[in-house]
Structure formats: C-alpha cells, structure tokens
Amino acid sequence: MKKYLNIRVWFILWIGWLPHFIPAQVDKYMEAMECYQKKDFACAKNKIDEVVIHPDTKDEPAAWTLKAYVYFQLFKNQEVNNRYSKYRQESIKSLEKSESLSPDPDVKEQNKKLLKIIAETFYNQIKVFLYDSLNYNACLELYNNYKNIYKTYDPNIDFKNKDIEFYLSVGGQFVSTMKQLLDSGKDIDESTFNKYTEVAKVSFNKVLELDPNNVSAFEGLAFTYYNQGAHIIKTMSFDIPIEQIEQMQDKSVQYLKQALPYMQKAYELKPNDPKVVEGLAGIYYALHDNEKHAEYMKKLEKLKKGEK
C-alpha cells in the first residue's frame, strides 16, 4: 500500500494532476507502471494498451511514453535481433505520439532518452547482419534507420565519423570474408565473390569521399583488387589448355595492378605500418616482381625487429 502511494505521489509530481484524468484510468496507469517496475512487461503492456485507447487518457503524453518504454522492453526481451521488430516500431510510434501531444519537459526528456537508445539498437543490430549473415542491404537499412532516428534525437549531429566507421566495418568484413574463402580449400561461388568485391569497393570508396587520406580504405581497396586477381587464379581449372593460362594471368594481373597504387598510397601515408609493408610485398610477389618483393620483405623484417 505504501509503495502504491509512493508511486501515486511520484506520478502526480511527475505529470501533474490533470482534472480530466478519471481515477480508474489513473489506477490502470499506476498498475502498468507497477508491472513495468516489477519487470512484468506482458502485464504492463496489457494495462498501458488500455490506458492509451481510453478516451480520457488517449491524449496523455506520459501514457504514450510509458507505452514506448514497455514496448521497448518487450523488444529487448523478445525481438532484440529482429530488424523488423513490431515492438520496437510500436515503441517509436508511441514516442512520436507522445511528442505530438506537447509533453512537459520531463516527459520530453524521457522521450529523447529512449529515442537515442532505440537508435542505438538499430546500430547494434548491424553487427548481427554484418558478422553473422553478411547481409549488406540489411546493414544499410539498419544504419539509415539509426541515422534517421538519431537525427530526431539530435538534429545537428554530424555523422561523418560514424559513416566512416560504418563503411570501414562493412568493407573490412567483406574483404575478410573474401580472404577466408581464398585461404580455404573451398570452391567459391563466382557471383557471391563478385558481390562481395562490389560491396567492399563501394564501402571503401565512400570512406575516401569522406576522408581522402584514410589508410584503412586504401588498404581495403588494395585487398579487394588483390583478392579479385587471386580469385581468378584460384578458380583456374587444372584442365585448362596452356594457351589459356596466359589469358587467365592477363585478367588476374589487371586486378593486381589496380591493387598496387592503393597499397602504394597507404604506404605513402603510413610507411612504417607492418601491415601496409607486408601488403606491398604481397602484391609485388603476385606480380612476380621478386626484387620489389624482397625489398619490402626486408623492410618488414626490420619493422618487426623494431627498426625503421
């Protein structure tokens, strides 16, 4: 009883007593709040769903805000990896509704807080679709959702660094997957491999648009072209006529030569980065340039020993 009273007092302090609020609906609201605090979100949902449709309380911002929080918890508990979660959508809609009803500053602050958290759930889900299923379209959709919602939270936000982080992560994951495929003995599906390379190229080029001296993007593009060249040779049949071996090499060398200037640029920017030096050595090796390969391998050894 004491707890109930405390909640009631707190509630009154929070939203202020509204004369048109009839006690029955206030009680229902209190029950919803109590269920929420007990983490019984199914119960909270049932109660708050009734509150927000009741004619006397349907225009109460705090009720919609509580609904948003309840639905958000249901999303967290039941649909955290579901990018089309209905609970999350309902939570967003409820926040919009609350905002449309001119809430007081306290409620507004709570709305804003939840909105930011919801935006971040979209960002967090990118990991699932990037690392587990390599689903680029899903990642892009989630990222755009994240940005759109975050803009509501903070209209002046500059997404440049977040964009760089997103596109580097996407490109990097696709390149890593290509490398794993090449290193494994498994046969590689041609169209899948091409799709991966396109995603990687688009992603790294986006980064360079935002940050023209981004070493990781240069490295990433070099890796991507290198992998394309390597893929041609890896998938070359042992039964190919000799005259066609040269044609396959022609195609492969084209890609390897495209990889080289990107890695050279990375080297220009970070000459003492072992990964970049190793990358250059690797490309020269694939291009059969033994002299250059040896030169950069020597430099790599020095770097590993701590010399420059």
Binding site: T121, Y131, Y226
Partner: peptide, 24 residues
C-alpha cells in the same frame, strides 16, 4: 532502462595480408 550501447562496430582490423593461398 538497462541498455548496453555498442558505440563502435568492429573497427576495421585487416588480418595480415600474408595470404595462405599462393597464386604463383
């Protein structure tokens, strides 16, 4: 609300360029 916020995706960390697969 207890919500763990992952502020960063996995920052691009290329594994070593050294390819296990030798095209030559």
């Amino acid at each position: 609300i207890k919500h763990i916020v992952f502020t960063l995706l996995c920052v691009l960390l290329f594994s070593s360029f050294k390819q296990n697969y030798d095209i030559n």
